[in-house]
Nucleic acid binder design. Sequence first.
DNA 1: GCCAACGTTGGC
DNA 2: GCCAACGTTGGC
Length: 140
Amino acid sequence: MNFWLVKQEPSQYNWDQFVKDKETYWDGVRNYQARNNLKNMRKGDLVFFYHSVIGKEIKGVAKVSKENYPDPTSEDPNWVVVNLKPYKELLSPVTLADIKSQQKLANLALIKQSRLSVIPLTKSEFKFILIMGNTKLSDL
DNA sequence: GCCAACGTTGGC
DNA sequence: GCCAACGTTGGC
């Protein structure tokens, strides 16, 4: 299983809307590095949902429910989406400031490449952030 | 609201 | 193929 983090501005699409929708396709990725990460997602992978600009915090965990397919919002076959389902809300959201204060997380692309919107994480990074969020997952 | 970082575009 | 100009993202 692999671990990821996706970013979105909550004014455009936020965690609460995602929970209401029950499932969504993650569209609008127009960056090759982020696109390549989308393509590497496998069904069942766990994905942090991060609110950029407003809040700047990880709100919850999503699960990949469908692997990459062409982005229905683009004519260009280069771009793909995956389907995500809400899996678990973090008991306490983990802020960017929290993450920056942790030496263990200093190598996260979230910090190093602030413009990348789809980011891979290691299992230990993922687990560490879950602990920071006071959240346990039964299948980890 | 500003600006640094970075990706993309287009002229040469 | 290089690089300047420009646009976008996102933290502060």
